[in-house]
Write a protein that binds this DNA or RNA. Structure first.
Lengths: 245, 245
DNA sequence: GAGCAGGTTTGATCTGCGTCAACATGGCAA
DNA sequence: TTGCCATGTTGACGCAGATCAAACCTGCTC
């Protein structure tokens, strides 16, 4: 087993799926109490991943998917020449590792951007359980499908939006997900660098920085390092809907 | 039922999954003969879609996924202001409609680029069958996962490649899929316009056209309208691996 | 076969973002 | 405290690809 795959910290769950506060944001959506306690048998291991460490790397054998319990991740793909494409940022309740099912190897890297904890869901077991629990099966399919739809959204960002539109969409997306987790929709800390934002949005870090400055000048947001405050949600949304050429 | 959803031509399958020549390219991968005949019960309806017609549209209720029997499709997403992002081109054996599972509505448009025929796979039935047939369940998960990985590839195209790299990657991809279907790897007809290629690659049609011309000047390909002949596969691949800035 | 429409090619020019470079800032270690 | 290093900001300039424009194919219809 490659060194980076050895669980850095493994613990029998002190808290099970049935008691997890993430509830509706994670896998157990729509399960009965009875079914939930079955899920507790499926998910028995958590893994701690410190900031900067990999949860998995491209080419690692695929064995499990991961539900983020706490923390924040990025996934990326590297080209031989060193160019990096960040394919997504993931927060609590979101599922990592779906890319590995098709080839039985992971096809991207998952890196913790802050100290994090994930629930390990052995994939073979998940398939077994989901043959018995229709609601689990169906919800898992929804999770995969939403990942596809999310990717389409990123393609739109990259394919047809200009720099400021991309950044506005990015901020609004973070805002919305922050709110869904019970945090402020208008104030949050970025976990990623300008470079990583740029890589995600298909821009250079200088362009990201300039766009932040311009948004601030226009009173749309207040930026202080990684701290972002959205001052004018409508203004950001307007950036998205109106094409000025 | 919206007019465009009414099946344009529905026929009981003259040829079942168990007899379909697509075999390993489509859903029935890895099924036993016994399981294959169960699949025949799942997939009993085909639908004909003429060139230019929609198989489904964004916002249509999601009921089924579709396996392409013959033909060629594009999927795209439209922004309110009319901008279009083509999210993919699909050929025989590939599965359409996975985007709809998560929200129970389709989230993109699927348009036939030539007269086509698809096998209708009612999604609820698929979930039922795949609870009984483990190999079907697993293969379906692989199909979804590969779609996610494919999308990551498109993000790389759009995020970090330059125009000529994008087009080279596009041509090599078409070549490889053409070969997988038993056709020539070096000679094929494009089913889409320059504009659609551009939309997929995040470029304008003029840029696509110029890149084609340059490839032709350099002896990499021969272009005649929609007919493409790849003269130098290695040369195209080299374009991808070497970054010259 | 004239005329038309949709698609394509090619040239000239423009521009948004990349590139390069200098400097600022903040966290951390010694 | 001091200095260092990673990260971020800002300015000047250049270029890949967009935009604008004109002409050209190919297959239709009438």
């Amino acid at each position: 087993m490659p060194a980076h795959l050895v669980p850095l910290a493994v613990s029998t769950l002190p808290e099970s799926c049935s008691q997890c506060s993430l509830g509706e944001l994670c896998l157990p959506v729509g399960l009965s109490n009875n079914e939930l306690s079955q899920l507790d048998q499926l998910v028995t291991v958590r893994r701690r991943v410190l900031r900067g460490q990999h949860l998995y790397r491209g080419d690692d054998p695929f064995e499990a998917i991961y539900a983020i319990k706490t923390g924040f991740f990025k996934t990326d793909v590297l080209l031989e020449d060193g160019r990096e494409q960040v394919t997504g940022f993931q927060m609590a309740g979101e599922i990592l590792g779906l890319d590995g099912i098709g080839t039985e190897k992971h096809t991207c890297n998952a890196v913790a951007l802050e100290d994090s904890e994930v629930c390990v869901i052995p994939f073979h077991d998940l398939e077994n359980y989901s043959r018995e629990i229709g609601a689990l099966q169906h919800h898992f399919h929804k999770v995969m499908s939403r990942e596809i739809v999310r990717d389409h959204g990123v393609m739109m960002l990259l394919g047809i939006m200009r720099a400021e539109e991309r950044l506005a969409a990015f901020l609004l997306n973070l805002s919305q997900r922050s709110m869904a987790r019970g945090y402020s929709a208008t104030e949050f800390n970025l976990r990623m660098t300008r470079n990583e934002i740029g890589s995600y949005l298909g821009l250079k870090l200088e362009t990201v920085s300039r766009a932040f400055s311009r948004f601030q000048d226009e009173g749309l947001i207040a930026v202080n390092q990684k701290h972002i405050q959205i001052l004018n949600v409508a203004g950001l949304k307007k950036l998205l809907s109106e094409r000025r050429t």
